[in-house]
């Protein structure tokens, strides 16, 4: 039985649509001048934000692989 609709399809939707909101957020706060990458402490926060997205993508992908193992 194919479990694509139970695994990778929601994964793609989650990080496709969710990712769109995430990067829209980054663009908006940068263009608004709320996030200032030239400041060291803001740059650190920007990397933490990217790390967070990658962190969750990795956790979900890892769990899907583990489920099929």
């Amino acid at each position: 039985m194919s479990l694509f609709t139970h695994s990778w399809l929601p994964y793609i939707y989650l990080y496709g649509v969710g990712g769109l909101f995430f990067f829209l957020g980054i663009i908006i706060i940068r263009r608004a001048g709320a996030l200032k990458p030239h400041l060291k402490r803001h740059r650190r926060w920007m990397w933490i934000l990217y790390f967070g997205l990658g962190w969750y993508m990795a956790i979900h992908a890892g769990l899907i692989f583990l489920a099929f193992k």
Binding site: F22, G25, I29, A34, G52, Y56
Partner: peptide, 17 residues
């Protein structure tokens, strides 16, 4: 519990300050 990160940029650098 694991889908809350997408709006964190808006929160940290918009609403919170």
């Amino acid at each position: 519990y694991m889908n809350d990160w997408f709006f964190v940029p808006f929160f940290m650098f918009g609403w919170l300050p």
